[in-house]
């Protein structure tokens, strides 16, 4: 009776099962191939394809050599630290500023409210490239003199993440029960107290959703890091881009470098996948 049916009574679909299995495999194989190659010795990787190491794992000479090399020769350890120092403040700080703005947009009445929010919606689409030349001048030696330092990149990511963060938080806050805020106001709470004690804790899921997205963006960003960080302060992604430029000698370091650059985002991805999905479904467009 139950044959050919799923637990919830739907018809089992062999076509979807096979196709999805193939698709999942196709989507995973390139990454798996890279992972496997990063643990193979240079000679091995040059004489046979990565698939042969998967098919015949005992016929390959496995090694950690690429990883130790990439840390020594490409300064990966320092770059990894830079990546964290850049990404964590650049992920958290915009949330503070955006949350207050989102609170005002959701729970306060004022003139030009709609116009101001439309500016947010519009600015989300503007490509961040508009900012580079003017801000290179502003942050450069003839301006503030902070180009090359973490501060420049923190500021940039905070500014670029702001419209999206306000948008996501405001959309979430407008689903919160207004009566709670209202009764707190009647009890004489100030707006700051209402925000801090009531709205901010309730908006935590949206903040986590934005933070997950923003962390992945900041960590994976190439352009801003390349333009605004000095070589000593630069991130893993920029180091990886430099490795991609090297041909021949040192090419085997590329795979290890790529995998190092993926470790942290992967952990964040698998640990916070639900928040990531929530962030995306709440309208995450970024210019």
């Amino acid at each position: 009776m139950n044959a050919g049916r799923l637990k919830d009574g739907r018809q089992r679909s062999p076509v979807s099962m096979v196709t999805m299995l193939l698709l999942a495999l196709l989507w995973t194989l390139p990454t798996l191939g890279l992972l496997v190659t990063s643990f193979r010795s240079r000679d091995d990787a040059l004489t046979s394809g990565w698939w042969s190491a998967i098919i015949n794992p005992f016929g390959t000479s496995w090694t950690f050599g690429n990883y130790t090399e990439v840390f020594e020769r490409a300064d990966m350890g320092n770059a990894f630290l830079n990546g964290i120092v850049v990404a964590v403040p650049a992920t958290v700080i915009p949330i503070m500023f955006a949350a207050f703005a989102a609170y005002a947009f959701t729970f306060l009445q004022f003139r030009f409210k709609e116009t101001l929010f439309i500016i947010i919606v519009a600015v989300m689409v503007v490509p961040i490239h508009v900012a580079f030349q003017p801000l290179l001048n502003l942050f450069g030696p003839n301006g503030l003199g902070i180009s090359g330092q973490y501060l420049a990149v923190w500021l940039l990511h905070t500014g670029f993440g702001m419209p999206l963060c306000i948008y996501v938080l405001r959309n979430y806050m407008s689903t919160l029960p207004y009566s709670v805020v209202e009764s707190a106001r009647i009890d004489g709470c100030s707006n700051f107290q209402i925000f801090w004690k009531l709205v901010a804790p309730m908006a935590m899921p949206a903040m986590a959703a934005f933070a997950t997205l923003q962390f992945l963006w900041v960590w994976n960003d190439l352009l801003i890091a390349k333009l605004f960080l000095s070589n000593d302060n630069t991130t893993v992604i920029v180091k990886l881009q430099q490795l991609l430029g090297t041909q021949g000698q040192g090419a085997e370091l590329l795979t290890a470098g790529a995998f190092i650059s993926m470790v942290l985002p992967m952990i964040v991805f698998f640990a916070l996948q639900n928040f990531l999905v929530r962030g995306m479904t709440s309208g995450a467009v970024k210019g």
Binding site: L21, L23, T31, N220, L243, S261, M262
Partner: peptide, 23 residues
């Protein structure tokens, strides 16, 4: 299966380029 197809979302464009170039 969705997790596997979703996973590349976490990978940077640069790392993805390295992956496809290598493999």
């Amino acid at each position: 299966s969705k997790s596997f197809i979703f996973m590349p979302m976490a990978i940077s464009f640069v790392a993805a380029s390295a992956i496809w170039l290598t493999t």
